[in-house]
Amino acid sequence: MPVAAVKYLPLLLLALAWEAVVRLGLISREVLPSLFDVLKAGWGLAREGELWQNGWASLYRGAAGLALAVVLGGVLGIAMAWWRTVNVFVAPLVEALYPLPKSALIPVTVLWLGFGDGSKILLIFLGCMIPVTVAAYNGARSSEQHLIWSARSLGAGRLRVLWDVVVPSALPELLNGIRTALALTFVLLVSSELIVARAGLGYLIGFLGDQGVYDAMFAVVLFVAFMGFFADRLCLLLTHRVLAWRE
């Protein structure tokens, strides 16, 4: 894979620079542990199982919250585009919630559902629902009149048109919205776990930081970054798969 190697060359250079500045004493190890130490600490966390235990907890919360948001947000957005009455009722709510910083909901969800999985799932669901709804709505609204007419004249009923034309027309935009929501999922997940949780990668970062085990803390931060990266790649791959017809 020479192409991929070249593409990620800057990343490799950054890693080397990191190691170099720490070894040369340009930055104190108190502020930035050496990459080597970080990886070693990460290996330790992985062997003891702490990384997987907490990783699994985070993955579960993130996936559940996002999945709920995608399903309900997708349905709601498309329904808003198709039925005026739904739009009349829901649009003001969406508009009001859109600019709300979703992290402000952290204490609210904790108050409702406590310190466990439930509050994180609800938070991610609420936070991601809005961008997904808006994307689905815009996508569905962009469905071309003539395609709808085509389907009708070929014998599709009105509801059938919704499934056969409006949903696929909404897909490109919807998938874009899902990608945004995915990034948001990580933000909400880690910040809520940092603040109030007894498990999860965010919790682990906070815990290790409090204990002053900075190399291990950095290792978890790196792990989260890689999880985010892979999730995003997976999302892109899926998008290209689903939208293969576009080119």
Partner: peptide, 12 residues
Amino acid sequence: GIVFQHFALFPW
């Protein structure tokens, strides 16, 4: 049956 001026094929 109608044949639209701009075809209106389902792109997907």
